[in-house]
């Protein structure tokens, strides 16, 4: 019964975002200004996130990186990667990457047992590559456009398509089924660890960008597209020199 509820929750949110994104899809854009109809709202949330980051998340994550020994940081990182890997497995199958999906199941089994509950990336050491798939990427592979850019409070950069998959992603995490206290502290540590991973990217943004919102928006959208194509985005996408000017 419970499993049925989970499945319907996943299907429901997938359906919802298909409908939403289909409505909001804008034509492919090559190098011309990124369509951003929600820019004023997005900038407001960007400012909110930035303030939150400067006041709390940034200092906490830098403190965490300083105090926690490197092996422990790696262990925590591996643990959350392993925990979140169920979403990667599901989406491998949804995208028809059966072999990858089977290999990834093996990866989680190996790391959860020999890798001491995921603390060690033992599977990685013996040659199982770590993949990164999610519901947003699956929808993209199925042909759903990104809709437009969304800056979400706390979550950060997203698109209408990706934001619509957050419920599906949430119920795919084992933390969703854990005791509330465990789930909350798990999410807390995960958030701090994620922020620590982004430290160098945020530093680069702050050093390079003239308009940090625009820089983050475009860099994130391009990185996301590269993920969707598993690191092999089509060449034509890079060749926009002759497109109409901005």
């Amino acid at each position: 019964m419970e499993r049925r509820t989970q499945c319907s929750a996943v299907l429901h949110s997938l359906l919802l975002c298909t409908v939403l994104s289909a409505c909001a899809t804008t034509p492919a854009d090559k190098g011309v200004d990124t369509p951003d109809p929600l820019e004023p709202m997005n900038r407001a949330f960007f400012a909110f996130n930035d303030t939150l980051d400067k006041a709390v998340l940034g200092p906490v994550s830098r403190g965490y990186a300083k105090v926690t020994p490197k092996p422990a940081q790696t262990g925590i990182r591996n643990f959350f990667d392993n925990l979140g890997y169920i979403e990667t497995i599901i989406n491998n199958f949804l995208q028809g990457k059966i072999e990858d999906g089977l290999e990834d199941i093996l990866r989680v089994v190996i790391n959860s047992t020999f890798g001491l509950g995921g603390l060690n990336d033992f599977a990685g050491d013996i040659g199982f590559p770590q993949r990164d798939e999610d519901y947003g990427q699956t929808l993209a592979v199925w042909g759903v456009g990104p809709g437009f850019y969304l800056e979400l409070p706390i979550f950060g950069p997203s698109t209408l398509r990706d934001a619509a998959t957050i419920p599906a992603s949430t119920v795919s995490s084992p933390l969703f089924y854990a005791d509330t206290a465990v789930a909350l502290s798990g999410r807390g540590v995960d958030l701090v660890d994620t922020r620590a991973r982004l430290e160098s990217a945020i530093k680069l943004r702050d050093e390079t960008a003239l308009d940090r919102y625009i820089f983050q928006r475009d860099a994130w959208l391009q990185r996301r597209r590269n993920h969707i194509f598993d690191g092999n985005a089509p060449l034509e996408e890079l060749d926009f020199f002759e497109s109409p000017p901005q």
Partner: peptide, 18 residues
Amino acid sequence: VAEGVSDLSLKRADYGSV
């Protein structure tokens, strides 16, 4: 293009905005 992120297109958006 570093890890799928085009320097030219980023600068175009960033400088264009300023």
